[in-house]
Write a protein that binds this DNA or RNA. Structure first.
Length: 186
DNA sequence: TAGGCCATCTGGTCCT
DNA sequence: AGGACCAGATGGCCTA
């Protein structure tokens, strides 16, 4: 049983507590950061080059960064507040993502161990599980279809799409019930 | 101790 | 314009 994750990393300095040596009116990116491979010191650690990251994305978005800051034209404090709000939203987003992973873990059968499935294991198992279920359903239904009827794979897809339209969320159980009925009827 | 996994921060881009 | 999404970076925890 893992018991990890601290609520806040103590070694990381939040934006609400800016470096004291930072010039309040200096636009980040308007001086040496803009023109060179600038490393950024955050908390106790040095971060890699901003320029190299930007360059990987859009062939040099350093100017975009400056543009963004000019557009906002806000003070250091206002930017800090926005950063903190953004961080909070990102945390919430990741928590929702992790909840979805947990739900997926509980939905797929796997050899019970004390060890929690990792994310990559969860995705891989889920994919395999879906494939296996699909194979089973098609095998069970294929032999019983009337000649000239809708191919079983297409029917499966139809059924799934109908389910999505009708049910929205929380319909997996009903979908599975449908599938069972479908395979029994065939 | 190295490597895997993860949470968090961050800035750029996309979307509404 | 602002929020969502994405991916890189970083550092902590855990296990082999």
């Amino acid at each position: 049983m893992k018991c990890k994750r601290k609520a806040v990393k103590p070694s990381r300095r939040p934006w609400s507590d800016p470096e004291p040596e930072l010039e309040p009116d200096t636009e980040p990116g308007s001086s040496e950061q803009e023109g060179s491979e600038a490393s950024v010191r955050i908390g106790d650690s040095w971060r890699g080059s901003l320029r190299s990251r930007a360059g990987r994305r859009q062939g040099g978005a350093g100017g975009g960064r400056r543009r963004r800051q000019q557009q906002h034209g806000s003070s250091t404090k206002e930017r800090s507040v926005r950063r903190l709000e953004s961080n909070e939203r990102e945390r919430q987003r990741m928590h929702k993502l992790n909840n979805a992973f947990q739900a997926l873990r509980e939905a797929i059968p796997h050899v019970k161990t004390d060890k929690k499935l990792s994310k990559i294991e969860t995705l891989t198992l889920a994919k395999n599980y879906i494939k296996a279920l699909t194979t089973i359903v098609l095998d069970m239904s294929g032999a019983c279809l009337p000649a000239g009827g809708v191919p079983s794979e297409a029917r499966l897809l139809q059924c799934y799409q109908q389910h999505l339209e009708d049910e929205g969320e929380d319909g997996l159980a009903r979908y599975l019930t449908q599938m069972r009925r479908f395979s029994q009827d065939e």
